[in-house]
């Protein structure tokens, strides 16, 4: 097990390095850089920058060096000084900018994921066991609606409801008085009271999808011979349902868990823009538009890292769940 983990961590590290290279160079690839944008902006305001001023700017931002050099400087500073570079657009160190936002994004994603599970798993089981019942049809109907409604529309509707009926402030994850307040219990409670809208918006499509998946997986398992065996042993119906077919049906679901996670993280951008959330999505969007090199690269690297972490998590969960996979992993590491 320890060797398996070590092996996976090494592979993870390699993946993250590869991602950092790719994300950095993809952003550098298009012609033009941040200074070009500054020059353009200055031109719009009727100011003309002298060539030597432009050169100075480039030197200041470190953009005069070759791409490879810039990359290694960036990485060296991350490794030795914990310095992720400087955001040109915000005029702030990247780490200061993204610290809280990254935390909020991770928190929002995990809460959404939990929401999806808590709703989808029991409903999926119910829909499979009571196939073609009224409840099954109702959930199927709601599920299709959930899949069909665009996220931004659902966000707007929920925003309206929360403002009209609950008297909450429009948008954001905090009420105005808490936005810049230090972390207290009251602030956390305020966060939770705002969180439900993005969680529902982000989770609905995923929930509908997972319900369909669990229902289909479980329907396949319900008539397997081992279920008959369990029944012939005289076990109670609910007990045997949860112990055997449900557990067998979770495998494909767990292995797709990371897909869901990635979907939530990347789907978050538009929702965050609509809802005015202080998460990484809008920041990344802005950084990409402005060719804010270090900010964009750092964000992409961290989000990818989250995705890689999610994969590891789902693999570990799969091993916990399925002894066959556990034994396979064990036999590989023995070699």
């Amino acid at each position: 097990m320890a060797r398996f983990l070590a092996r996976r961590l090494v592979l993870m590290l390699l993946t993250v390095i590869a991602i950092s290279v790719i994300s950095f160079f993809i952003i550098i690839l298009p012609p033009g850089d941040f200074v070009d944008r500054l020059v353009q902006e200055a031109n719009q305001y009727g100011e003309n920058l002298e060539p030597h001023e432009i050169e100075d700017l480039r030197r200041n931002y470190g953009l005069d060096r070759s791409a490879v050099e810039q990359y290694f400087v960036w990485i060296r500073n991350i490794l030795f000084r914990g310095d992720f570079g400087y955001s040109f657009g915000w005029d702030l160190p990247v780490s200061e900018l993204i610290g809280q936002r990254l935390g909020l994004t991770a928190f929002l994603s995990v809460v959404t994921l939990l929401f999806v599970w808590i709703v989808a798993i029991p409903v999926g089981i119910y829909a499979a066991v009571r196939k073609y019942s009224l409840g099954d049809y109702v959930f199927t109907f709601l599920g299709f609606i959930g899949l069909a409604i665009p996220n931004f529309l659902l966000a707007l509707v929920l925003l309206y409801i929360s403002f009209r009926y609950f008297g909450q402030s429009v948008g954001g994850l905090f009420s105005p008085e808490y936005v810049n307040a230090p972390w207290t219990f009251a602030r956390f409670a305020d966060l939770l009271s705002h969180l439900w809208i993005p969680v529902i918006v982000l989770g609905t499509a995923g929930t509908a999808e997972i319900i369909r998946k669990i229902r289909a997986n479980l329907l396949d398992e319900l008539h397997r011979p081992y279920v008959l065996t369990a029944r012939a042993k005289g076990l109670g119906e609910t007990y045997l349902l949860l112990k055997y077919p449900v557990r067998h049906s979770l495998n494909p679901f767990v292995s797709e868990l990371n897909d869901l996670f990635v979907k939530i993280v990347s789907g978050e951008t538009i929702v965050a823009v609509v809802l005015g959330l202080q998460t990484t999505g809008p920041l990344l969007l802005e950084a990409l538009k402005e060719e804010d090199l270090y900010l964009a690269s750092t964000l992409i690297m961290f989000l990818s890292f989250l995705a890689v972490l999610g994969t590891l998590f789902s693999d570990l969960l799969l091993m916990l769940l399925d002894p066959k996979i556990r034994r396979q992993a064990a036999s590989r590491e023995m070699m």
Partner: peptide, 8 residues
């Protein structure tokens, strides 16, 4: 198939 592969 009559036994579960998830439990010993």
């Amino acid at each position: 198939t009559a036994l579960s592969s998830f439990y010993t």
